[in-house]
Measured scan of single mutants.
Amino acid sequence: RKESAFKSMLKQAAPPIELDAVWEDIRERFVKEPAFEDITLESERKRIFKDFMHVLEHEC
C-alpha cells in the first residue's frame, strides 16, 4: 500500500527523523523518493507524517 511505503521511507530515513521534526523542514529530503511521489496530496503526506511521529513518540 502507498501509505505503508511512505511510512517505510520515513522510518528508513538517514539520518533518522528526530522527535521534534516538522514536516516542512524535512519534506525536501524525500521529494525525489517514489513513495513520496505516489502520495499526490500534500495533506495526505502530512497526515501520514503525523501518524508516523505519533508512533515514534510512543516507541521512546
Rank of each mutant, 00 (worst) to 15 (best):
R1E: 07
R1W: 14
R1V: 13
R1D: 15
K2N: 02
K2D: 05
E3F: 02
E3N: 03
E3G: 03
E3W: 02
E3L: 03
S4I: 13
S4Y: 15
S4N: 12
S4L: 15
S4D: 08
S4F: 15
S4A: 15
S4V: 15
A5W: 04
A5C: 15
A5K: 15
F6P: 00
F6I: 00
F6L: 02
F6C: 00
F6Q: 01
F6S: 02
F6K: 00
K7D: 06
K7W: 09
K7P: 01
K7H: 06
K7Q: 11
K7G: 04
K7F: 15
K7E: 06
S8Y: 08
S8A: 09
S8G: 14
S8M: 14
S8L: 15
S8F: 06
S8V: 14
M9I: 05
M9Q: 02
M9N: 00
M9H: 00
L10H: 01
L10A: 00
L10T: 00
L10V: 02
L10W: 00
L10G: 01
L10P: 01
K11P: 00
K11H: 10
K11T: 11
K11A: 14
K11D: 11
K11Q: 11
K11V: 09
Q12S: 10
Q12C: 07
Q12T: 12
Q12H: 10
Q12P: 00
Q12M: 09
A13M: 05
A13G: 04
A13I: 06
A13D: 00
A13K: 04
A13C: 09
A13W: 03
A13N: 00
A13R: 02
A13S: 08
A14W: 07
A14Y: 08
A14T: 12
A14N: 13
A14V: 12
A14Q: 15
A14M: 07
A14K: 10
A14F: 11
A14H: 14
A14D: 08
P15Y: 02
P15K: 05
P15G: 03
P15T: 08
P15R: 03
P15I: 05
P15C: 04
P15V: 05
P15F: 03
P16V: 07
P16L: 05
P16K: 13
P16A: 11
P16T: 08
P16F: 06
P16S: 10
P16Q: 07
P16H: 05
I17P: 03
I17L: 13
I17E: 02
I17Y: 01
E18Q: 05
E18D: 13
E18H: 15
E18N: 10
E18G: 14
E18M: 15
E18R: 13
E18Y: 08
E18V: 12
E18F: 08
L19T: 13
L19W: 10
L19K: 15
L19Q: 14
L19I: 12
L19V: 14
D20F: 09
D20L: 06
D20Y: 07
D20K: 10
A21I: 04
A21D: 15
A21R: 04
A21E: 09
A21Y: 03
A21T: 14
A21M: 08
A21S: 08
A21W: 04
A21N: 05
V22R: 12
V22N: 08
V22F: 04
V22L: 08
V22W: 05
V22A: 09
V22T: 13
W23T: 02
W23G: 01
E24C: 07
E24G: 08
E24A: 07
E24Y: 04
E24I: 04
E24P: 04
E24V: 05
E24N: 06
D25C: 08
D25R: 08
D25H: 14
D25Q: 08
R27A: 05
R27D: 01
R27H: 02
R27K: 05
R27M: 07
R27V: 03
R27S: 03
R27G: 03
E28P: 11
E28D: 09
E28H: 14
E28M: 14
E28S: 12
E28V: 11
E28T: 10
R29I: 04
R29A: 05
R29T: 07
R29D: 03
R29F: 04
F30A: 01
F30R: 02
F30T: 01
V31P: 00
V31K: 13
V31T: 09
V31G: 10
V31I: 07
V31H: 07
V31M: 10
V31Q: 13
K32H: 07
K32C: 14
K32M: 10
K32S: 11
K32W: 08
K32E: 07
K32P: 05
E33M: 07
E33S: 12
E33D: 15
E33L: 11
E33F: 13
E33H: 07
P34D: 08
P34E: 11
P34S: 11
P34T: 10
P34M: 06
P34Y: 04
P34V: 09
P34L: 07
P34I: 12
A35N: 03
A35D: 03
A35W: 02
A35P: 07
A35Q: 09
A35K: 04
A35M: 05
F36V: 01
F36N: 03
F36A: 01
F36W: 05
E37C: 15
E37I: 15
E37Y: 11
E37L: 14
E37S: 11
E37G: 14
E37Q: 12
E37V: 13
E37K: 14
E37P: 03
E37T: 13
D38W: 07
D38V: 11
D38M: 13
I39H: 01
I39R: 01
I39Q: 01
I39V: 11
I39N: 00
T40S: 13
T40F: 05
T40H: 14
T40C: 10
T40M: 11
T40K: 14
L41C: 10
L41W: 08
L41F: 14
L41I: 13
E42G: 02
E42A: 01
S43G: 10
S43A: 13
S43F: 09
E44N: 09
E44G: 03
E44Y: 04
E44W: 06
E44F: 03
E44V: 05
E44Q: 10
R45T: 02
R45M: 02
R45Q: 03
K46S: 09
K46C: 08
K46T: 06
R47I: 10
R47F: 05
R47W: 03
R47T: 08
R47D: 08
R47E: 10
I48S: 02
I48Y: 09
I48N: 03
I48W: 07
I48V: 07
I48Q: 05
F49N: 06
F49G: 02
F49R: 01
F49E: 00
F49W: 07
F49Y: 08
K50V: 10
K50S: 14
K50I: 11
K50A: 10
D51Q: 13
D51F: 02
D51A: 10
D51H: 07
D51T: 10
D51L: 06
D51W: 03
D51I: 03
F52L: 07
M53F: 02
M53I: 06
M53N: 05
M53R: 07
M53Q: 13
H54C: 10
H54R: 14
H54Q: 08
H54D: 10
H54P: 06
H54T: 14
H54G: 14
H54F: 12
V55C: 09
V55Y: 09
V55T: 15
V55D: 13
V55F: 06
V55I: 14
V55N: 06
L56W: 10
L56D: 08
L56C: 09
L56F: 12
L56H: 15
L56A: 11
L56S: 10
E57D: 14
E57T: 11
E57W: 08
E57R: 11
E57V: 10
E57N: 06
E57M: 09
E57A: 13
H58P: 15
H58E: 14
H58K: 11
H58R: 12
H58T: 14
H58D: 14
E59H: 07
E59C: 11
E59Y: 05
E59A: 07
E59I: 03
E59K: 15
E59W: 05
E59S: 09
E59P: 10
C60F: 09
C60I: 11
C60P: 15
C60N: 03
C60G: 10
C60V: 07
C60Y: 11
